[in-house]
Simulated assay, not measured.
Amino acid sequence: MSYEKTYIMLKPDAIKRRLMGEIISRIEKKGYHITQAKIMTLDETIIAEHYSHLLDHPFFPKLSAFMTSGPVFAMVVEGENAINGMRQMIGATNVFEAAPGTIRGDYTNNVTENVIHGSDSPENAAIEIARFFG
């Protein structure tokens, strides 16, 4: 096992639905540490950079509109095996495949508005932490 840092973002629907406390509590109860956090509003430029792999998909305009619809809560989460551990807690990106007990499985019923983002690799975690925290 290795000590890792990962980037986690609570999306606008999590903020609007007042799920921040519940999700943060799950992260901390699992034994992970939130070492940096901030509420921020994203613009279309940073959304295009963050989701560059999705720019050519027909759903990208809807995703961009959603992600700029309200504030997000950005976090750096640290701990043993934090990247894979958080991805398991988050659940499948397709919410209809997300298992009960995962964050998406418990709180999401929409593919676009799926409550939370988490880095999927050490390389992407480093890029995303730099992107959102400088």
Rank of each mutant, 00 (worst) to 15 (best):
S121R: 02
P100W: 07
D13F: 14
A126G: 09
K5N: 10
I103V: 15
V95S: 09
K38D: 07
E78W: 02
F73K: 12
N114W: 00
A130Y: 07
Y7F: 01
A98I: 13
M20V: 15
T102I: 10
G134I: 03
T45A: 12
E80P: 10
S69K: 09
A125R: 10
F60C: 12
K30F: 12
E78S: 06
S64R: 14
M67D: 05
L55D: 01
K16F: 15
H33N: 15
N84A: 14
M40I: 15
I129W: 08
S25Q: 13
K29P: 08
M40N: 15
N109Y: 00
Q36Y: 12
I47L: 00
M9A: 10
N84K: 14
T41D: 13
F73E: 04
A130I: 03
D56W: 03
G91H: 03
E97W: 02
E128S: 11
P71D: 06
V115N: 00
T41Y: 14
M67T: 13
T93Q: 00
R18C: 12
G134D: 10
A92H: 11
S52R: 15
G105T: 11
P122S: 00
G85I: 14
H50N: 13
S119E: 15
K62P: 04
I116R: 05
Y3D: 11
I127G: 07
E97S: 08
I47K: 01
L63D: 04
E78D: 05
I129D: 11
T45V: 13
P58I: 10
S52H: 14
E97T: 08
N110I: 10
V72P: 07
G70P: 01
V95D: 04
K29C: 02
M9Y: 08
G85N: 06
Q88R: 10
E4V: 05
M20N: 12
H57I: 05
E4Q: 14
G31Y: 07
M89N: 05
G21L: 10
N81S: 15
V115D: 00
V77P: 02
I24T: 04
R131P: 05
T35M: 02
A65V: 11
G70D: 02
A99F: 04
Q36T: 10
E113K: 03
M20D: 11
G70M: 01
R26Q: 00
D56P: 01
I8L: 03
K11A: 07
T68N: 06
G105P: 00
T102F: 01
E49F: 09
I90T: 14
E22A: 10
L19N: 04
F133D: 09
M9R: 08
G105I: 09
R18I: 10
M20W: 09
A14Y: 00
S121A: 01
